[in-house]
Design a protein around this nucleic acid. Structure first.
Lengths: 256, 256
DNA sequence: CGAGGAGTTGATACATCTCAAAAAATGTGG
DNA sequence: CCACATTTTTTGAGATGTATCAACTCCTCG
């Protein structure tokens, strides 16, 4: 659904009908469906396309020489991967599907054309890229400074807020969350067992319900406090965080 | 010294005399000198300039709500900070001087003009940005997957190789290294005490000599092996790493 | 209904942290 | 160039967060 991308970009600037349909076009031309754990593109390959996540979760990850895996970021619907990576030539990391995944493969030239035609869209893409970098920096702080419990809580906050921003949190305060505990631990730099225990602590305190590939946040404020989560790095419009908020509001936009 | 920037960019593409003097120009207009620990720009401020490090080390860092500090990257001579950060508006992190520092402050418009006039230089700047992001990703893997000893070794490898690439490693295999152990530990996510002990292990094994704000690497191969250091993410020309190499080679370029 | 993936549990080991203080290096003003 | 103040590095010892190993249970899905 390109609507997720549109919702996200509108955090930066409102888009015209024309701009929105240009995005719709881009995403309709060439699509690809993958299973969980399939690679969108692997370390060592040359990027041919810009990938737009339409449905499902993906991740950027890196395998160390000795086999350890670090997940570098999660992609949720509306996320754009590797807008500029062709400049480097060879991928120094991989992109893989976390869940069943549908993506649009967009040629660099097609993106280029749209960006030339719609300068505001071009700036919105830029903004989007920079927010991605800000998230990576926050992850660095997460791994470097926070305890296991904080890391887990922080990642849940981040993902939940990002999902909310694209309208994927429902009225009950729940959203799809297909990330396994093994994936979480590779993202957070802690063991699976420890991840499991930290999640149970969060459950025991009544902050979250996490089961069946879905995450429900019952007390976002408390979760944010526990994590030292300060959402400004996401550069979204709403920085409140007091309560999960009125989910109805998230549906205000046209559903493309 | 703009020569460091030039050397670095020439890892991507050779630059003409004209292009090099354009860079020289950029860096001569407006300069600024700071003491250790001064901020170049602080979290919350709006970036006004692109900063080019001419002499000394700086770092990008982030202060968590509860005061903990994470260093996100180190800047060495020739590094360009925040080529595009004006898009985000407000800095979500700070840039501070690690050592006495001299920087050039370049207006976005001046950079813009040069990039328009010299497309190859423009692509070189791009490449430079992307290498910066690749380094950040590697740091994530470093914090998430490596042990304390490996982290220390890895950061030393990275810094040493980057210094070598801009010609700042001397014939004895030594380079300036003004980073304190406290800084190292904030970058690596381990305590000062542990950092100290890991450094001593490296010394005891005869891999490095680190004292008086200088780092000498005596066995780069062994250090790289210990760290699981795989330099391809730096996207430099020489990926050997067998021995510190012939430093004379690094002086082949004109000294601007 | 069976199989493999995902989640959970308990027990033990160890890497790393914390606290506290000394030693060494560095900078500064007289 | 010395004396003092400050920062940085080093050391020791005890506390603890997290990893590891191994087993078991519970899902999910074909």
């Amino acid at each position: 659904m390109v609507v997720h991308l549109i919702r996200k970009l509108q955090n930066y600037a409102p888009l015209s009908e024309e701009e929105r349909s240009a995005l719709q076009d881009l995403s309709n031309r060439r699509q690809r469906v993958l299973n969980s754990r399939d690679d969108v593109i692997a370390q060592g390959e040359r990027p041919g396309f810009v990938n737009l996540v339409l449905e499902g979760f993906a991740c950027r990850y890196k395998i160390l020489p000795d086999g350890r895996r670090q997940i570098l970021s999660f992609f949720i619907p509306g996320d754009l991967c590797d807008l500029h990576n062709e400049v480097l030539g060879v991928m120094d990391h991989s992109i893989g599907a976390i869940s069943p995944l549908r993506i649009a493969q967009i040629g660099s030239d097609e993106i280029e054309a749209v960006m030339t035609r719609f300068p505001r869209l071009s700036r919105a893409f830029w903004w989007n890229e920079l927010v991605g970098e800000a998230i990576t920096r926050e992850w660095l702080a997460n791994l470097g400074q926070r305890t296991g419990a904080e890391r887990v809580a922080h990642l849940l906050c981040e993902t939940f807020v990002r999902m909310r921003a694209i309208g994927l949190v429902d009225a009950a305060g729940a959203c799809p969350f297909p990330i396994t505990q093994a994936d979480l631990s590779d993202a957070l730099g802690i063991s699976i067992v420890h991840t499991n225990r930290m999640l149970q602590d969060l459950r025991a305190e009544g902050l979250i319900v996490l089961k069946g590939r879905a995450l429900q946040v019952d007390d976002l404020g408390a979760l944010m406090r526990l994590a030292n989560f300060e959402p400004s790095y996401l550069h979204l419009r709403r920085h409140d965080g007091e309560e999960a908020g009125d989910p109805a509001e998230m549906h205000r936009e046209t559903t493309a």
